[in-house]
Measured scan of single mutants.
Amino acid sequence: MFYPNSPQTSPQLTQIPYGQQYAMMQRQIQQPYHPFATTEPQARLYPYHYQGPIQQEQGGFITQQSTAASPQYVQMRVTPVDQSIMSGYPNQTANGSSSSSFNYNIHPQQQQQQQQQQQQLRHHAMPVGSVPLQDDRYRKQLIVNYLAPDVTSTDLHELFSRFGELDGARIIYDKQTNMSKGYGFVYFCHAEDAKEAVERMSGYEFHGKWLKVGYSTNPLNIVPSNSSPYVHAGSRGAAG
Protein backbone atom coordinates (compact mmCIF):
# COMPACT_ATOMS: atom_id res chain seq x y z
CA MET A 1 0.00 0.00 0.00
CA PHE A 2 1.31 3.40 -0.95
CA TYR A 3 0.45 6.55 0.98
CA PRO A 4 0.43 10.03 -0.55
CA ASN A 5 3.30 11.16 1.66
CA SER A 6 5.20 7.87 1.81
CA PRO A 7 8.92 7.75 0.88
CA GLN A 8 8.07 5.67 -2.22
CA THR A 9 5.91 8.40 -3.77
CA SER A 10 7.38 11.54 -2.23
CA PRO A 11 10.30 13.25 -4.00
CA GLN A 12 13.52 14.02 -2.32
CA LEU A 13 13.60 17.03 -0.03
CA THR A 14 16.39 18.53 -2.05
CA GLN A 15 14.17 18.67 -5.15
CA ILE A 16 11.35 20.58 -3.40
CA PRO A 17 11.53 24.38 -3.21
CA TYR A 18 12.13 25.89 0.18
CA GLY A 19 8.89 26.53 2.05
CA GLN A 20 6.96 23.61 0.55
CA GLN A 21 8.86 20.73 2.11
CA TYR A 22 6.16 20.07 4.71
CA ALA A 23 3.12 20.76 2.49
CA MET A 24 2.94 17.57 0.50
CA MET A 25 -0.77 16.71 0.90
CA GLN A 26 -3.50 18.48 -1.06
CA ARG A 27 -5.34 19.63 2.06
CA GLN A 28 -2.08 21.13 3.31
CA ILE A 29 -1.24 22.85 0.04
CA GLN A 30 -4.69 24.50 -0.19
CA GLN A 31 -4.66 27.73 1.70
CA PRO A 32 -7.58 28.41 4.10
CA TYR A 33 -10.02 31.18 3.25
CA HIS A 34 -9.68 34.32 5.33
CA PRO A 35 -12.51 36.82 4.67
CA PHE A 36 -10.60 39.69 6.30
CA ALA A 37 -7.28 38.98 4.56
CA THR A 38 -7.68 41.54 1.77
CA THR A 39 -6.31 44.93 0.92
CA GLU A 40 -9.65 46.53 -0.02
CA PRO A 41 -11.19 48.63 2.80
CA GLN A 42 -14.78 47.84 1.73
CA ALA A 43 -14.21 44.14 2.24
CA ARG A 44 -12.81 44.70 5.72
CA LEU A 45 -15.81 46.77 6.75
CA TYR A 46 -18.48 44.66 5.05
CA PRO A 47 -17.10 41.11 4.67
CA TYR A 48 -20.51 39.51 3.98
CA HIS A 49 -21.96 42.12 1.63
CA TYR A 50 -18.90 43.11 -0.38
CA GLN A 51 -18.44 41.19 -3.62
CA GLY A 52 -15.76 43.09 -5.45
CA PRO A 53 -15.54 46.43 -7.24
CA ILE A 54 -18.42 47.68 -9.37
CA GLN A 55 -17.77 48.05 -13.08
CA GLN A 56 -19.69 50.04 -15.68
CA GLU A 57 -20.63 48.03 -18.74
CA GLN A 58 -21.85 49.19 -22.10
CA GLY A 59 -25.58 49.84 -22.23
CA GLY A 60 -25.91 51.79 -18.99
CA PHE A 61 -26.37 48.85 -16.58
CA ILE A 62 -24.28 48.44 -13.45
CA THR A 63 -23.13 44.92 -12.66
CA GLN A 64 -20.82 43.40 -10.11
CA GLN A 65 -17.71 41.44 -10.86
CA SER A 66 -18.17 38.60 -8.38
CA THR A 67 -20.61 35.72 -8.27
CA ALA A 68 -24.14 35.63 -6.86
CA ALA A 69 -24.70 36.69 -3.28
CA SER A 70 -25.51 34.42 -0.38
CA PRO A 71 -29.20 33.58 0.09
CA GLN A 72 -29.06 35.26 3.48
CA TYR A 73 -28.28 38.65 1.96
CA VAL A 74 -30.12 40.32 -0.90
CA GLN A 75 -28.11 42.50 -3.28
CA MET A 76 -29.97 45.32 -5.06
CA ARG A 77 -29.13 46.00 -8.68
CA VAL A 78 -29.06 49.73 -9.36
CA THR A 79 -29.61 51.29 -12.76
CA PRO A 80 -28.88 54.90 -13.64
CA VAL A 81 -31.79 57.33 -13.75
CA ASP A 82 -32.82 58.60 -17.13
CA GLN A 83 -32.55 62.39 -17.03
CA SER A 84 -35.26 62.75 -19.67
CA ILE A 85 -37.84 61.73 -17.06
CA MET A 86 -37.06 64.83 -14.99
CA SER A 87 -37.35 67.20 -17.95
CA GLY A 88 -41.07 67.82 -17.40
CA TYR A 89 -40.74 69.26 -13.90
CA PRO A 90 -40.87 73.05 -13.47
CA ASN A 91 -37.98 75.19 -12.21
CA GLN A 92 -35.44 72.63 -13.40
CA THR A 93 -31.88 73.78 -13.84
CA ALA A 94 -29.41 72.78 -16.52
CA ASN A 95 -27.70 70.13 -14.38
CA GLY A 96 -30.93 68.20 -13.90
CA SER A 97 -31.73 69.37 -10.37
CA SER A 98 -34.92 71.20 -9.49
CA SER A 99 -35.68 73.75 -6.81
CA SER A 100 -38.07 73.14 -3.93
CA SER A 101 -40.60 75.80 -4.98
CA PHE A 102 -42.90 75.14 -7.95
CA ASN A 103 -44.30 77.83 -10.16
CA TYR A 104 -47.28 76.67 -12.19
CA ASN A 105 -47.91 80.13 -13.68
CA ILE A 106 -51.23 80.53 -11.84
CA HIS A 107 -53.07 83.79 -12.19
CA PRO A 108 -52.88 85.92 -9.02
CA GLN A 109 -56.68 86.02 -8.67
CA GLN A 110 -56.94 82.25 -8.94
CA GLN A 111 -54.19 81.83 -6.39
CA GLN A 112 -55.98 84.18 -4.00
CA GLN A 113 -59.23 82.26 -4.43
CA GLN A 114 -57.47 79.00 -3.67
CA GLN A 115 -55.98 80.47 -0.51
CA GLN A 116 -59.40 81.69 0.62
CA GLN A 117 -60.91 78.26 0.00
CA GLN A 118 -58.15 76.61 2.02
CA GLN A 119 -58.73 79.03 4.88
CA GLN A 120 -62.45 78.27 4.83
CA LEU A 121 -61.76 74.55 4.91
CA ARG A 122 -59.44 74.98 7.88
CA HIS A 123 -62.07 77.11 9.58
CA HIS A 124 -64.84 74.54 9.14
CA ALA A 125 -62.70 71.44 9.60
CA MET A 126 -62.69 70.59 13.28
CA PRO A 127 -60.95 67.56 14.82
CA VAL A 128 -62.78 65.23 17.13
CA GLY A 129 -62.92 66.53 20.68
CA SER A 130 -62.03 70.14 19.82
CA VAL A 131 -64.26 73.08 20.71
CA PRO A 132 -64.95 75.90 18.23
CA LEU A 133 -64.71 79.45 19.47
CA GLN A 134 -67.42 81.07 17.37
CA ASP A 135 -70.34 79.32 19.10
CA ASP A 136 -70.56 79.12 22.88
CA ARG A 137 -73.08 76.30 22.71
CA TYR A 138 -70.37 73.86 21.72
CA ARG A 139 -68.74 74.44 25.09
CA LYS A 140 -71.90 73.46 26.95
CA GLN A 141 -72.75 70.09 25.45
CA LEU A 142 -70.89 66.94 26.40
CA ILE A 143 -70.89 63.41 25.08
CA VAL A 144 -70.57 60.55 27.55
CA ASN A 145 -69.25 57.25 26.17
CA TYR A 146 -69.04 53.72 27.59
CA LEU A 147 -72.31 53.83 29.49
CA ALA A 148 -73.73 50.66 30.96
CA PRO A 149 -76.88 49.25 29.30
CA ASP A 150 -78.98 49.82 32.43
CA VAL A 151 -78.16 53.55 32.72
CA THR A 152 -81.17 55.78 31.98
CA SER A 153 -81.45 59.46 31.13
CA THR A 154 -82.51 60.17 34.72
CA ASP A 155 -79.35 58.52 36.05
CA LEU A 156 -77.24 60.54 33.63
CA HIS A 157 -78.94 63.77 34.69
CA GLU A 158 -78.44 63.06 38.38
CA LEU A 159 -74.79 62.17 37.79
CA PHE A 160 -73.88 65.45 36.08
CA SER A 161 -76.26 67.82 37.85
CA ARG A 162 -73.87 68.12 40.79
CA PHE A 163 -71.53 70.22 38.61
CA GLY A 164 -74.15 72.83 37.74
CA GLU A 165 -77.51 73.52 36.17
CA LEU A 166 -78.39 71.37 33.17
CA ASP A 167 -80.48 72.02 30.10
CA GLY A 168 -80.98 68.31 29.58
CA ALA A 169 -79.48 64.83 29.50
CA ARG A 170 -80.45 61.89 27.35
CA ILE A 171 -79.34 58.40 26.42
CA ILE A 172 -79.29 57.38 22.76
CA TYR A 173 -81.29 54.21 22.06
CA ASP A 174 -81.59 51.99 19.04
CA LYS A 175 -84.96 52.49 17.34
CA GLN A 176 -85.28 48.86 16.30
CA THR A 177 -84.13 47.05 19.42
CA ASN A 178 -84.95 49.84 21.91
CA MET A 179 -81.60 49.15 23.58
CA SER A 180 -79.03 51.68 24.72
CA LYS A 181 -76.18 52.36 22.31
CA GLY A 182 -73.79 52.99 25.19
CA TYR A 183 -73.48 56.77 24.95
CA GLY A 184 -75.47 59.89 25.75
CA PHE A 185 -75.40 63.69 25.79
CA VAL A 186 -75.41 66.18 28.64
CA TYR A 187 -76.33 69.85 28.12
CA PHE A 188 -75.11 72.43 30.63
CA CYS A 189 -76.35 75.99 31.11
CA HIS A 190 -72.84 77.35 31.72
CA ALA A 191 -69.60 76.53 29.93
CA GLU A 192 -67.60 76.60 33.17
CA ASP A 193 -69.69 73.78 34.63
CA ALA A 194 -69.23 71.71 31.49
CA LYS A 195 -65.47 72.19 31.63
CA GLU A 196 -65.36 71.03 35.23
CA ALA A 197 -67.45 67.97 34.37
CA VAL A 198 -65.06 67.02 31.57
CA GLU A 199 -62.04 67.29 33.85
CA ARG A 200 -63.54 65.33 36.74
CA MET A 201 -65.76 62.73 35.05
CA SER A 202 -63.33 61.36 32.48
CA GLY A 203 -62.35 57.94 33.81
CA TYR A 204 -65.09 57.90 36.45
CA GLU A 205 -66.55 54.46 37.22
CA PHE A 206 -70.32 54.33 36.88
CA HIS A 207 -72.34 51.09 36.92
CA GLY A 208 -69.20 49.05 36.37
CA LYS A 209 -68.03 51.10 33.37
CA TRP A 210 -65.24 53.64 33.03
CA LEU A 211 -66.75 56.75 31.46
CA LYS A 212 -65.14 58.80 28.72
CA VAL A 213 -66.41 62.39 28.68
CA GLY A 214 -65.65 65.03 26.07
CA TYR A 215 -67.14 67.93 24.14
CA SER A 216 -69.73 67.04 21.51
CA THR A 217 -69.07 68.92 18.26
CA ASN A 218 -72.07 67.57 16.36
CA PRO A 219 -74.36 70.56 15.59
CA LEU A 220 -77.41 68.27 15.42
CA ASN A 221 -77.15 67.65 19.15
CA ILE A 222 -77.07 71.32 20.16
CA VAL A 223 -79.94 72.37 22.41
CA PRO A 224 -81.31 75.83 21.49
CA SER A 225 -81.18 78.33 24.33
CA ASN A 226 -84.88 79.18 23.99
CA SER A 227 -86.05 75.55 23.90
CA SER A 228 -87.66 73.76 26.78
CA PRO A 229 -85.50 71.33 28.78
CA TYR A 230 -85.53 67.66 27.94
CA VAL A 231 -87.89 65.40 29.80
CA HIS A 232 -85.75 63.25 32.06
CA ALA A 233 -88.02 60.25 32.13
CA GLY A 234 -86.82 56.86 33.17
CA SER A 235 -88.61 55.09 30.33
CA ARG A 236 -86.63 54.44 27.19
CA GLY A 237 -89.37 55.58 24.87
CA ALA A 238 -89.50 59.05 26.36
CA ALA A 239 -85.73 59.40 26.63
CA GLY A 240 -84.81 58.21 23.16
Rank of each mutant, 00 (worst) to 15 (best):
F2G: 14
Y3G: 04
P4I: 10
P7E: 15
Q8E: 09
T9K: 00
T9Y: 14
Q12T: 10
L13K: 02
T14H: 15
T14S: 14
Q15M: 05
I16H: 02
P17K: 03
Q20G: 04
Q21D: 11
Q21G: 13
Y22D: 03
Y22S: 13
A23P: 06
M24R: 05
M25N: 08
R27S: 12
R27W: 15
Q31G: 05
H34A: 10
H34S: 15
F36P: 02
Q42L: 07
Q42F: 12
Q42K: 14
A43N: 12
R44S: 07
Y48R: 00
Y50T: 00
Y50E: 12
Q51Y: 15
Q51A: 09
G52P: 08
G52Y: 06
G52A: 12
G52R: 09
P53D: 08
P53Y: 04
Q55V: 13
Q55C: 05
E57P: 04
G59A: 11
G60F: 13
G60A: 04
F61V: 02
F61H: 04
I62F: 15
S66R: 05
S66I: 10
T67R: 03
A68T: 09
A68C: 07
A69V: 14
S70F: 14
P71T: 10
Q72I: 11
Q72S: 08
V74A: 00
V74T: 01
M76K: 05
R77T: 05
V78R: 06
T79N: 03
P80D: 14
Q83D: 03
Q83R: 05
S84F: 15
S84R: 14
S87Q: 10
S87C: 04
G88A: 05
P90S: 14
N91C: 07
Q92L: 07
A94W: 06
N95E: 02
S99I: 03
S100I: 15
Y104G: 11
N105Q: 12
I106S: 04
Q109V: 02
Q111Y: 15
Q111S: 14
Q111N: 12
Q113G: 11
Q114P: 09
Q116E: 02
Q116P: 07
Q120H: 02
M126H: 03
V128C: 02
P132Y: 01
L133F: 05
L133S: 08
D135R: 03
D135P: 02
D136V: 06
R139Y: 05
K140M: 01
Q141F: 02
V144W: 04
V144I: 04
N145F: 03
L147H: 08
L147G: 05
P149K: 00
D150A: 12
V151E: 13
T152M: 14
S153Q: 02
S153M: 01
H157A: 11
S161P: 04
S161V: 10
R162H: 07
G164A: 05
G164T: 07
G168I: 02
A169L: 01
A169Y: 11
A169G: 01
R170A: 10
Y173T: 13
D174V: 11
D174K: 09
N178K: 11
N178H: 05
M179R: 08
S180N: 11
K181R: 09
Y183E: 12
V186D: 13
Y187W: 00
Y187R: 00
C189N: 13
E192H: 12
K195E: 01
A197Y: 11
V198E: 09
E199L: 13
E199D: 03
R200L: 13
R200M: 14
R200S: 10
M201G: 06
G203M: 13
G203F: 01
Y204A: 05
E205C: 14
E205R: 07
K209P: 06
S216V: 03
S216H: 12
T217N: 10
T217V: 01
N218C: 13
N218A: 11
P219T: 05
N221F: 13
V223D: 02
V223G: 06
V223T: 04
S225M: 14
S228W: 09
S228G: 05
P229I: 10
A233Y: 00
A233L: 02
G234S: 13
S235K: 13
R236K: 10
G237C: 08
A238S: 02
A238Q: 14
